[in-house]
Simulated assay, not measured.
Amino acid sequence: MSGEELKKVGLKVTLPRLKILEILETQGEDHHLSAEDVYKILLDQGEEVGLATVYRVLTQFEQAGIVRRLNFENNISIFELDTGDNHDHLVCLKTSRVKEFVDPVIEERIKEIAKENGYELSGHSLVIYGTFNGEQ
């Protein structure tokens, strides 16, 4: 996303916004980062941006539909770019690692369950919690 696209969603183009957007696009596994992760990366890059600014920008991005805030058990709260795709998440309870996955069988079953119960599906959220053991 560019500065022009930030303007289109009603946000002024500022250096902190551009830097945070760049981090979300390029850093972090599957683009899942906490506000603290973003803040640490900014510090490592020599940027002088406060944690409050990071939270404020991420909240503005969320309101503008640029990012999604995901809240998981164990007070895990992360941000990911809102790419418009539908995916689910695996969360490691030990490391807080978050991994995306898509399973067509699960997606189809969710649609069937909604229909069987008289619901018109508008969306869903599936989170699987466990402990990552390093094997794939």
Rank of each mutant, 00 (worst) to 15 (best):
H124M: 08
E108M: 03
Q27G: 00
L6P: 08
T83P: 01
K8N: 15
N117C: 14
A35L: 02
E48S: 06
I23W: 01
Q45C: 02
I78R: 02
V98P: 00
F72R: 03
I110S: 05
E47W: 06
V105L: 10
E36G: 09
K40F: 00
I76Y: 00
N86P: 01
R69Y: 04
Y39I: 13
E4N: 12
D103L: 00
V49W: 01
V57N: 12
Q136F: 14
I76K: 03
G50Q: 03
T95I: 03
Y129D: 11
G130R: 14
I106H: 09
E120M: 13
L51P: 05
R97T: 07
I23K: 06
K12F: 03
V9L: 13
H124Q: 08
G65I: 04
G28P: 02
Q136L: 14
L51A: 05
K12R: 13
F72A: 02
N74D: 07
V38H: 04
L11P: 07
I23G: 09
I113T: 09
Y39E: 01
E47Q: 13
M1P: 09
V49Q: 01
P104M: 01
L58V: 11
R69D: 04
V49I: 15
I113C: 04
L121I: 11
E47V: 08
A52F: 02
E135N: 12
D30F: 14
H87A: 07
N117R: 15
E108G: 02
I76D: 00
L58I: 03
S125M: 08
V54A: 10
V54N: 05
P104W: 04
K19C: 05
F101E: 06
Y39Q: 12
T53V: 05
F79L: 00
G123L: 14
D30L: 07
L33M: 08
R69L: 12
E108A: 06
N71V: 15
F79I: 04
K19Y: 05
